[in-house]
Structures are given as structure tokens and as C-alpha cells.
Write a protein that binds this DNA or RNA. Structure first.
Lengths: 143, 143
DNA sequence: ATATCATGGTTGATACGTCAACCACAATAT
DNA sequence: ATATTGTGGTTGACGTATCAACCATGATAT
């Protein structure tokens, strides 16, 4: 169904991604103790919500299920990175970043940026960037 | 540390990969009940070992830790996909694909191939393929 | 012969992901 | 007023991933 060359392309692509990605994440977790998910959550609360964000909005922007987010927030709450507070106005829950969550985030940002540059951007040519941009467009249109 | 455009490249790349990859895997698991790991293990036993493979060889070719493989094989053994048998000659364990493991694998191959073509290869131009090949070379050399 | 080391594998604890079932509240229809 | 539906969130069970500690066997050095 696929010839050797086609199979190879797939494996190379998969392999490149996994290597690069795990290097970036590893660099962050080793330096700050945040997981990929932790960082994503904190980043969005900070960036889109300016310190607090409704759980459902978080679900949408993370492209996670509500279940996954709920479980993850439980763990983050336990570690003191965020708080959860029921909304006064009817249904829903506010997720609030704590000061320790905020400083973990601030510590992580430069580390993540440096790692992305080192392991990813520095490896790319102009052409690569075009490829990525075009491919992303096609993928996102295609569904 | 990173400008908006650089951040976008990263997110597009990450997003494209995750979407494509999860579509391929989902297609397989829905049709055959095999996870990505299951398929990888069975594929290698079949392809490199012709039905049986030493656990350590499996570890090497999967690029997994021995611990991860051990846990995974325990689950696969429970489901009757593989058997484990201590090697007579000293140390080590043979992992043997069962007939039900083999047929699950055979069922999966065409499904995986079709999915890779549909969600990945069909999206690529000749040029894209060349770029991916080169990129992969750079990544894999770089460590 | 026995201490030491390297290799190959297991185990337990814990974090992360997914699925299906469930619960709470609000809006709408009758 | 009360049933129905939709939205927002939780929970429990289980599969997957990682880490560190551990155990068994085989090879090497003394």
C-alpha cells in the first residue's frame, strides 16, 4: 500500500517531530518543573485572560476535552499553580493563576523560547518555513 | 525572545503534526483496537524478527526505555497479542507474536497505510518531501 | 573461588490521557 | 409549574509514560 520511500518519509517526519518536541519540553521541565500541559494552561490564562479564565474558554483554546482539563487542573491546584472558583453569575468556573503559578510561568518563558530557537528554528531554512506554513494551512482547512 | 512570527511557526508545526498524527492513529485504533505502541511492537517483531525478537532489540528499535517496553508488553501479553519466553542461552527474553497478534497486525497494515496516505502524503508536494527528508537528516545528525 | 561490574528485565509510584457515566444549573417548551 | 434539553464541570476506571529502585544472570578481575 505504501512503498519504502513513502514509509520512510512518514517515519522521518514523525521522528523529527518527536525528537525536537521532546527536547524542547525536557529543557523546560528540567529547569522549571512545569509539564507541557502546565505551561499551556498558565500561558493561556495569562495571555488571554490576564490572570483568570473561564474553564470552558480554556478547553476551547487548548483543544482539550473538558475531562482532561478538569483532571489536569486538579493536579495543578494541588501544586498551588492555580485556583478554581465557581462563577457567581450562574454556571461555570473561573481558573485563576496564583502568584507562584505566575512566577513559574515567567521563569519558563525564556527557557521555552531559547529551546524552540535552539532545537527548532535554528534548524530551519526559509523554504522549510514556507513548507510548514503551507502545510498548516492545508491541514487546518481540511477539517 | 521569540517574535510573533516565530511563535506562529512553532505552533503551526506542532499543530499540524498533532492533527495528522492523531488522525492516523485514531483511524487504526478504531478499526483494529491496536494502539500506536501495539502496532510498533508487532510491526518490528514481524519485520525484523520474523515472528520473534529479543526484548532488548525491541527496546533499541522502538527507542523506548526498557521499563516502558516491559510495562507495555505486560499489557499486550494479557490481551494475547504476544508471549514472553526466557532465553535458554543465558540472559534475556524472547518476545513472540501470537497468531492473534499477527492477524491484528495484518489487519492494521492497510488501514495505517491508507490513513498515512490520506492524511499525510496526499497533502505533500514533491518539494515538500525533499524538504522533510533534508530536515530529518539535519535533526538526526544533530545529536 | 569470590567479589565486582555490566547487561537485561521487572516493579511500584505517580503523572498524564481518554472514555463513559454522572451531576448541577439554566434556558426553553408544554 | 414541570418536563426537556443544553451547557459546564466532575468522577472513576483504565491505558499509557516516566523515574528510580530493584533483581537476576553472565563476564571480568583478583
Amino acid at each position: 500500500m505504501l512503498n519504502d520511500e513513502e514509509m520512510q518519509i512518514w517515519h522521518m517526519w514523525k521522528g523529527s517531530f518527536k525528537r525536537i518536541f521532546s527536547r524542547v519540553i525536557k529543557e523546560m521541565t528540567e529547569h522549571t518543573g512545569l509539564s507541557e500541559g502546565d505551561f499551556g494552561v498558565l500561558d493561556r490564562i495569562d495571555h488571554f485572560g490576564n490572570g483568570k479564565l473561564r474553564q470552558q474558554d480554556l478547553v476551547d483554546s487548548m483543544e482539550w476535552t473538558k475531562s482532561r482539563l478538569s483532571h489536569h487542573l486538579t493536579r495543578m491546584e494541588q501544586r498551588g499553580l492555580v485556583l478554581r472558583k465557581p462563577l457567581d453569575t450562574g454556571n461555570g468556573v473561573q481558573v485563576i493563576i496564583t502568584s507562584s503559578g505566575k512566577s513559574a510561568l515567567d521563569d519558563s518563558r525564556p527557557i521555552v523560547s531559547k529551546a524552540i530557537r535552539k532545537y527548532f528554528l535554528d534548524q530551519l531554512t526559509e523554504q522549510d518555513i514556507e513548507l510548514i506554513t503551507n502545510l498548516a494551512k492545508r491541514i487546518n482547512l481540511g477539517s
